[in-house]
Write a protein that binds this DNA or RNA. Structure first.
Lengths: 352, 352
DNA sequence: TTGTATGCGTTATCAT
DNA sequence: ATGATAACGCATACAA
């Protein structure tokens, strides 16, 4: 029986057919036996299993996916895995995916909308069961169109300002208030904020909470105290430099995130400013290095792995059609980790 | 026409069939038109494209994979993406994968052989086109069996001591010698080595080069100067503590990697030892934080992204059957980044 | 209990 | 230029 069809599909893989032929039974019997159905004689099953093992048979996930209409695959889009928090988000997603027998297809977008679009198209073509986006870009029309194409999706850490999606984030407002209250308790009144990128929804939330606190706690409302950062070390350095070179320097800085806080440390050491004696510093995210004794950064702990897991859980609900229309948001608490980078404001007596 | 087949495969997706029906042509014509064959009238093509767009048609990667016998997917196995070097390896792999229209399935093994086995089985079932392993476990019989099952694979950063595989690594011997020569030039004679895990092939290579150098450079051969580390901060702390509490402390330490070097910094600050005045420190990997001004760690730069790319390139050669049997090794150069954590040995005049 | 037939969506071959 | 068909590997409904 010569193959009549085209060159592709070289048919080198051992398939259920080979097992059937070799064990002298039919396809379905093999299928039944191997998937543990009870309608197969123990003897037949034994035989089949032996043959399968001998031939090194391994069911084709591709064929299965085609048949089931499910790939047991989840696509993950993030700007850059190399960014400190990303691996933890990823691990959280994986925790749940593993449990649900799903694998992860990972794509880096480098924060480029075009790259994200291309990746999304590929992922949808691959028929992933769902999509997790840790991305600033969830608002452009093309992306919305793909998002609405029917494949479940969930936003993690960054949300769309204009649309209502399934979303997992952290309580940034609470975080900001607790940071400020901590600083206020230490006597700080002139607090600088390094805000994150304008497209970042979390940056916006933090900024709003900051303004709210400035008003309600009676802090110095000088708009010069709010500078632009970008979540990177270098951006943190530049932003911090602007704050430090202000005619009247803030006594404390809240960085856009831990990485930009590193930039602040650089800027401070350059100017011979001692932290926390001359300047208190609060980070955001609580990445691993924040807890190193020689860094010892006071920061807001983002439960990254838990957030990833929560996102994946939301996604699985959709995939299992447990929830069809109503969107859901999960906001996880955020905790201030008080470490050594914050101290009494200069000129304030200890235990003020 | 009621569906007769089983419950799965719900048939909700718009397929090439729908496009064919809607545009009043046959399946093959749609396929030809959409895949840019020239045997289609321009008018027909227009029509088909319009319909496809209108219906939101997207070809099924799964069906294609079944048909082609290729999934355009590469499986990546690593102990833990959260480890500092992993994201860079991953990016390198992705660089090449993107170019080759492949996506990455990422699996964390947590360095557990059972987990790795399970993931490998899943990946092979999914019919990935190839496998990249950044894993200590490539030597157990079960794993070898899967590795030899026909799917191309390449080892990255860690190799098998017993088997010859496609492999990409760095020139660890050169790295170690350059580190030692740097220290020797600074007057160090009593150098401590924190070796990596025993299963780590790179750790072994470094250790051998260290011993070679101790002999050839006439360094203190005290076996107590070699302690066990584990690539983690805490392990580095403990190992460094042992070295520092030696009756006669080394004047320099070469850490297992940058993370354990952080542990050394912790141990040093705990003992009030100043680096590099009392103790010189060399790391390994050159992760981002090594270059932060307030850390400023002298370390060996591992070209991680390039290594990942080289591994993926090797893999693609196999996938494209450019190379069938002969295994290939790529050893990338490693470069000493001299920063502030190394200085003259105590008791040595400056500019010794 | 076991075998036969069908379809998942695609594309290459072959016929028209 | 276009259409009919088979095959990739699997799982199921149904018949024997």
């Amino acid at each position: 029986m010569p193959r009549k069809n085209g060159p592709p599909a070289t048919r080198q893989r051992v398939s259920i057919r080979d097992v059937a032929r070799e064990s002298g039974v039919s396809l379905s019997t093999v299928s039944n036996a191997l998937s543990g159905k009870d309608c197969v004689t123990e003897k037949t099953r034994q035989k089949i299993e032996e043959v399968a093992r001998r031939l090194g048979y391994r069911a084709s996930g591709v064929a299965r996916a085609l048949r089931y209409g499910r790939t047991f695959t989840i696509g993950v889009l993030m700007a850059d895995v190399s960014n400190a928090s990303m691996p933890d988000f990823l691990r959280g997603i994986e925790d749940v995916a593993d449990r649900e027998k799903c694998s992860l297809l990972l794509c880096n977008t480098d924060d480029l909308i075009e790259k994200q679009l291309a990746h999304m198209r590929v992922l949808l073509e691959r028929q992933v069961d769902g999509l997790v986006l840790v991305s600033q870009h969830c608002d452009s029309p093309e992306i919305r169109q793909l998002l609405d194409a029917g494949t479940p999706s969930v936003l993690l850490q960054r949300r769309s300002p204009r649309y209502k999606d399934d979303y997992v984030g952290a309580d940034n407002r609470e975080g900001m208030l607790s940071a400020i209250d901590h600083l206020v308790a230490l006597g700080h009144k002139r607090i600088g904020l390094m805000r994150g990128p304008v497209q970042s929804s979390t940056a916006t939330e933090k900024l709003e909470a900051f303004r709210e606190a400035v008003a309600s706690r009676g802090l110095d409302p000088d708009p010069g105290l709010i500078v632009q950062g970008n979540y990177l070390v270098e951006g943190g350095y530049q932003a911090a430099s602007r704050l430090m070179d202000l005619p009247k320097r803030p006594t404390a800085i809240i960085a856009a995130n831990d990485m930009s806080a590193m930039g602040v440390l650089n800027a401070a050491s350059e100017r011979g400013l001692s932290i926390p004696r001359d300047l208190s510093l609060v980070g955001w995210d609580d990445v691993e290095l924040a807890s190193f004794p020689f860094i010892d950064l006071t920061t807001l702990h983002l439960p990254k792995r838990e957030m990833g897991a929560a996102a994946a859980t939301l996604l699985m609900e959709r995939i299992h059609k447990k929830r069809r229309v109503k969107t859901k948001e999960v906001i996880l608490p955020i905790e201030l980790m008080v470490r050594g980078s914050t101290g009494p404001a200069p000129g304030i007596r200890r235990r003020a």
